[in-house]
């Protein structure tokens, strides 16, 4: 038989258990938000998937973010403002909040009529979305980097495609007008931009496709931003620098690569990396540096791609 003391204590225990039940679960977290339980003074870092109890407290610092799901109702909430939050209060507010379809619809109509949709206006004039290419062109992405050159004539390289015999290189300005085109069986071509009509544009699209229609499955294309330095300043700096790094060693080529990187001279930088790697093919760090540079400039995309 349960003693009277236990009978008295049991409702309290049950109440405590109910109050200590899991109320929220963490869906997403950014920053250093922390959680503290009622029976502890220690603030613990919030982990994704963690369950938060009714008696807990949450603390957010500036720029922290916490996405939570209310376990009982499935409603989700986002905490974005720095401060301390009492989980019980949050749970009460979540439970109290509710609106019918009609209320939501009415609000939508009112917002639409008053031209305040409640959404954000983040329209952008045209999103560049590129198919991932199978012909990988060694050129940087316009979003990430600008190619600086002292000349409008330069070499463009790409990786050999196993299914293409003859390549057709097409360079277009931003109005899709062809400014340069050539054919080659090689994987490099000298592009001469003086021969086309670029006008004032300094941004072009490079395309490398299979010349034969039967082979034309996955064209490579690159949107490239370039700057031709015609002030002779860059040429002067380059000459001065090269006069100090004359020896043909791998390390010197690496130094040259870094110089070209700092001047955004992409083609020259890649050429210097390739020469360093050729001289010391067993040094993995050189390859890693080149890879890092290609990633940084957007010349190569993420490792795994679906397209």
């Amino acid at each position: 038989m349960i003693s009277k003391k236990l009978q008295f204590l049991m409702p309290i225990c049950i109440a405590f258990m109910v109050n200590a039940q899991d109320v929220f679960k963490v869906l997403a977290a950014k920053g250093g938000s922390t959680v503290k339980s009622a029976n502890s003074s220690e603030w613990k870092k919030t982990l994704i998937g963690m369950k938060i109890q009714q008696t807990d407290a949450i603390k957010l610092n500036a720029n922290d973010y916490l996405g939570l799901i209310h376990i009982a109702s499935g409603k989700t909430l986002e905490l974005k403002t720095a401060g301390s939050y009492n989980v019980k209060d949050l749970a009460t507010k979540v439970s109290a909040t509710g609106s019918t379809y009609s209320q939501k619809y009415a609000e939508y109509v009112m917002n639409a009529m008053s031209n305040n949709s409640g959404g954000t206006n983040n329209s952008v004039g045209g999103v560049v979305y590129r198919d991932v290419y199978d012909v990988m062109i060694d050129l940087p992405d316009a979003k990430a980097s600008t190619v600086v050159s002292t000349s409008k004539v330069f070499d463009v390289r790409w990786h050999k495609h196993p299914k293409i015999t003859t390549y057709l290189v097409v360079v277009q300005n931003m109005f899709d007008e062809v400014v340069f085109t050539t054919e080659t069986k090689d994987t490099t071509v000298k592009v001469d931009l003086t021969k086309g009509d670029l006008g004032d544009e300094n941004r072009v699209k490079f395309k490398v496709v299979a010349k034969n229609a039967e082979e034309r499955l996955w064209p490579g294309d690159k949107d490239v931003s370039f700057h031709i330095d015609e002030t002779k300043g860059l040429e002067k700096r380059k000459t001065e620098f090269l006069s100090e790094v004359k020896e043909e060693t791998a390390l010197n080529y690496l130094i040259k690569a870094k110089f070209y990187e700092s001047e955004s001279m992409f083609m020259e930088a890649i050429d210097a990396y390739d020469k360093a790697i050729k001289l010391e093919p067993k040094v993995e760090e050189f390859k890693a540096l080149k890879h890092e540079y290609l990633l940084k400039t957007g010349a190569i995309r993420k490792e795994e791609s679906k397209k």
């Binding site: 499935g74 409603k75 989700t76 909430l77 986002e78 403002t81 507010k93 909040t97």
Partner: peptide, 14 residues
């Protein structure tokens, strides 16, 4: 939109 959080009533999926 509450003062310190933003709540959506639709069901999440854990």
């Amino acid at each position: 939109q509450q003062k310190d959080f933003s709540l959506n009533e639709e069901q999440g999926d854990t």
